Computed example of a mutant assay.
Amino acid sequence: MRGVAVAMRSAVEIAPTGSRPAIRLRPVPRSEPPFDDESAPQVWAPPRQPALEWPAGTQRSPEKGRPASPAVAGAAGDAKLAARRFVHLCVEVLNGFRPAAHLRRMALPAEAAEVVAQGLAGARRAAELRRAGHRGARPARRPVPVAVLRLRLCEPRPGAVEAAVTLVTGDRTWAMAFRMELHQQTWATTALVII
């Protein structure tokens, strides 16, 4: 015990002296601050804006008279990931880095042919836009790629996601819309339209 006291005394003696404040140990508070998921959400509302209160469960779906769940802006995390993966795959097809047949693996078998046909039509249109941009001007070293400007997701019902994508090629803007549904724990595309 005497060795510990000597070691502590020597540590205190070695500490620099001068204008620095002394280090003080304070007791730990009796409770910890709440986690993010435990705290109540803060809702901001302007002072003069009327609140929109939708009656819960008043809408009925056409099948079996069940209450329809409201459409949710945004989507669940796994749905967002699947939608972004599909958009990335479509952009690679439109830019000519992949064949349109690669869209088949992310589509339902019944709708796969239509999804691939839409992807192929979009790739042809992107190629035509690139060729039209090179006419009358000196060709660029690299063609202008198709890029995503914005991706908007909506979940009309659990297990289904609809997306609207704004694309740009050079100075031309176009759109793509698709729907994905959850089948056997996998998100699959059921419809694709490139405008």
Rank of each mutant, 00 (worst) to 15 (best):
R2E: 09
V6M: 00
A11K: 03
A11C: 08
V12I: 00
V12D: 00
E13N: 06
E13I: 05
A15T: 11
S19M: 02
A22I: 02
I23V: 04
R24I: 02
R26I: 01
V28Q: 13
P29T: 07
P29A: 10
P33C: 05
P33N: 01
P34N: 02
P34S: 11
D37C: 09
D37P: 00
E38T: 00
Q42G: 12
W44Y: 04
A45F: 01
A45E: 07
A45L: 06
P46K: 00
P46I: 01
P46R: 06
Q49I: 02
A51P: 09
E53D: 02
W54S: 07
P55S: 12
A56I: 13
T58M: 13
Q59D: 01
R60D: 01
P62W: 04
E63G: 15
K64G: 05
K64E: 03
P67Q: 10
A71L: 02
V72G: 00
A75E: 03
G77Y: 01
K80G: 05
A83L: 12
R84E: 14
R84V: 04
L89G: 06
L89Y: 01
E92M: 10
V93F: 04
R98N: 06
A101H: 14
A101R: 11
H102I: 05
H102M: 10
L103E: 04
L103C: 13
R105E: 08
M106T: 09
M106Q: 10
M106G: 11
A107R: 10
P109M: 06
P109V: 08
E111Q: 08
A113Q: 08
A113L: 05
E114K: 04
V115A: 08
A117W: 00
A117R: 06
A117K: 11
G119K: 06
G119V: 03
G119E: 03
L120F: 08
G122C: 14
A123N: 12
A123D: 14
R124K: 07
A126D: 15
A127H: 11
L129H: 13
R131W: 07
A132R: 10
G136Y: 15
A137Y: 05
A137V: 12
R138H: 06
P139E: 13
P139Y: 07
P139M: 15
P139R: 11
A140F: 08
A140K: 11
R142D: 09
V146Q: 13
R150H: 11
L151E: 03
L151W: 08
E155M: 15
P158D: 15
G159R: 12
G159D: 03
A160Q: 06
E162R: 08
A164N: 09
T166G: 11
T169F: 11
T169Q: 13
D171Q: 14
D171H: 04
T173S: 14
A175D: 09
M176A: 08
M176G: 11
A177L: 04
A177S: 15
L182S: 06
H183S: 09
H183L: 07
T186D: 07
T186L: 10
A188Y: 02
A188F: 01
A188T: 03
T189L: 15
T190S: 09
A191L: 14
A191T: 09
L192R: 13
